[in-house]
Design a protein around this nucleic acid. Structure first.
Lengths: 175, 175
DNA sequence: CTTGCTGCAAAAGTTTTGCACACGT
DNA sequence: ACGTGTGCAAAACTTTTGCAGCAAG
């Protein structure tokens, strides 16, 4: 149950995140429970950025019973353990992403469709460290979010000739 | 009422934001009401990043009666007009900032005290445009948020010798 | 066994919405 | 006058928390 062959291996020789999680829990005097294992599992099957509710539905869809309270509590522990990262894309809902051993990423978000494209920000780390140094800060993490119009959205908008030319987002704006 | 001498002029010859707001409203078939004027006024007295609730309290403190519903509705219009920008720093609450005619800024947020330091990201625009081009996106805006430990927080933590050395945030984590 | 964990339901906090009435244009 | 706006209160939503019973180390 703890480490079933992941549906889609992230890396051929990925580190055993389950073990890492257990170690973190032990260090903190916390317990490794079936519920936490299930949440970790669901998280590992994840691709890209996801919301808490998405994970909740995934779990239920697989017949697993985990309460939302436990889910949120576990997501926090997974953050603390460095396995996932909270990705703040909008003000209304938290997003998360597997991040163990990964470089910080940037996010390109379509203002119309909300599709998210990730990109590398390796060359940003120097800039980040310089800025932190200038202000006496010790860097912890950084996040670059770009909002733009995706090619599909532009195409769709072009087909909409006849409606108002002023572009209206597909869903209410949430940054 | 519309353009009282701003308490703290942002720039010696700042553009008349009130006029710009009115023009935007007219273009959209919306109305310029006393409440919207009050919200704009309070916004103009703002320094740096603020929360919706802060503005609400400011307004009430000045004896103005504007409902939260109207405040939120107006903030949206101000965003549309390009006068303010929604600054997403954490998942739980939206932040805003005067942004008309300003370069996009970056934000350095202390993980302990949540103090916010702003910095310039002019040199980021090229990178942004390059990334957008690579993915066929048309850039709209970008936001770089750096989380780190502020000098004060580090000092305070140093004084806390005796408590747990493991750093604990001042307030519950909100990215 | 001791200490932490879970589920439930209620609470908390921010933002949105329906409605009746009021007001810019 | 017409079409929007406003305030209020309730709703919507995500996330947190209190509590009684349960389970991991």
């Amino acid at each position: 149950m703890q480490t079933p062959a992941p549906n889609q291996a992230r890396e051929p020789d990925a580190p055993p995140l389950c073990a890492i999680f257990r170690r973190h829990l032990k260090r903190e005097g916390l317990k490794f429970t079936p519920e936490r294992a299930k949440v970790l599992d669901a998280t590992l099957k994840t691709v890209g950025v996801f919301e808490a509710d998405r994970l909740y539905l995934d779990l239920r869809g697989q017949g697993h019973r985990v309460s939302k309270a436990t889910l949120y509590r576990t997501l926090k522990h997974l953050c603390d353990a460095g396995i996932i990262t909270e990705v703040v894309l909008g003000p209304n809902q938290a997003h998360y992403e597997l991040s163990f051993g990964q470089q910080p990423k940037g996010y390109l978000v379509c203002v119309h469709t909300h599709r998210i494209v990730e990109f590398n920000t390796a060359d940003l780390t120097d800039l980040r460290d310089r800025i932190c140094a200038e202000h006496g800060f010790t860097p912890v993490s950084h996040r670059l979010v770009i909002h733009g119009l995706s090619p599909e959205a532009r195409k769709a908008a072009a087909n909409d000739r006849g409606s108002k030319p002023s572009a209206k987002p597909v869903r209410p704006p949430s940054s």
